[in-house]
């Protein structure tokens, strides 16, 4: 694989590519995100876990810029991106190159009318207009990187399977060469064997490119598989944070234990989980 390093701008200093401090966001009277802070090392992988409504998706959307925070800061490569997004083209493209996102549902995150090749060409035309002649080669390279062939380049999204579509979405995000890739439940809509393929693919891409991952998921198996560090969120607050292996092996917060116990396995009793949840 060539020309896949040099992802995004160099960090101002140290090994932190993404730093989130004191994030707050309320929807009406509901405090969706309350004082959330975490940081992501360059080339690292951070998981945010929690059940539905724990505020993890809102946090991700604030990081990407699809949602505005009431308070707090999001720094990417030493630049603050939590303020009002600029309206200028340069600023817009700069923000896009800082953080890219892979959405949950690959059936909805691609325009049904645009072929795979054109999806990638659009991104390249927008971000690298000066290397226009190079785009055909780059499209092939990106498809190759996510394990798709030239046969898929001409296909429309509806002609592809869920796993293939998610690969397209990943390629589209990589085309921009972001510093951070936010994956919002990126494998939740796929079946288990395809999940494993995509997770392996993501691990390979991280090793090759050094892009930092922010993994939003409710699936502890995914967290174990692809993240170095993990943040556990509940009711909009961070209840536990630390290296993934430590947190999963020795959870200190009752909620983390509950999440771990909630994973179905032999001898698993949902009534106990419900009782523990009520007690919490």
């Amino acid at each position: 694989m060539t020309d896949t390093t040099g992802a995004g701008p160099e960090p101002a200093g140290g090994g932190t590519v993404l730093e989130v401090t004191g994030l707050h966001r309320a929807f009406g009277s509901v405090q969706a995100v309350h004082d959330v802070s975490f940081s992501l090392a360059r080339g690292g992988s951070l998981g945010i876990v929690g059940e539905s409504g724990s505020g993890k998706t809102t946090t991700a959307r604030i990081v990407v810029g699809l949602e505005r925070a009431d308070a707090g800061r999001v720094m990417v490569c030493g630049r603050d991106r939590s303020g009002q997004p600029g309206r200028g083209r340069t600023q817009r493209l700069e923000r896009a190159r800082e953080v890219q996102m892979v959405f949950q549902d690959p059936f909805l995150s691609l325009d049904p009318r645009v072929s795979v090749g054109n999806v990638l060409r659009e991104a390249l035309r927008l971000h690298f207009p000066e290397t226009r002649v190079d785009h055909a080669r780059r499209v092939g390279e990106l498809l190759d990187q996510v394990g798709l062939g030239s046969r898929e380049a001409a296909a429309l999204p509806r002609q592809l399977s869920g796993g293939q579509r998610q690969r397209v979405a990943i390629a589209r995000a990589l085309a921009v060469k972001p510093a951070v890739l936010v994956l919002d439940e990126a494998v939740a809509a796929l079946d288990v064997s395809v999940q494993a393929q995509i997770l392996n693919l993501l691990a390979d891409i991280r090793r090759d490119t050094g892009i930092g991952y922010l993994f939003i998921t409710h699936d502890l198996g995914v967290v174990r598989c692809v993240t170095d560090d993990v943040v556990v969120m509940r009711h909009g607050r961070v209840v536990e944070a630390g290296p993934t292996a430590d947190v999963l092996a020795d959870p200190r917060h009752a909620y983390t234990r509950l999440l771990l116990d909630s994973v179905p396995r032999p001898g698993w009793n949902p009534k106990h989980i419900a009782a523990a949840r009520r007690a919490l």
């Binding site: 890219q100 949950q104 549902d105 659009e122 589209r172």
Partner: peptide
């Protein structure tokens, strides 16, 4: 529809998304 957000994240302007998608 989520693909509109996907294009916003990619850095396309609102006008471009309207006209092209």
């Amino acid at each position: 529809r989520p693909f509109v957000e996907a294009y916003q994240v990619q850095g396309h302007s609102g006008l471009q998304i309207c006209l092209r998608h």
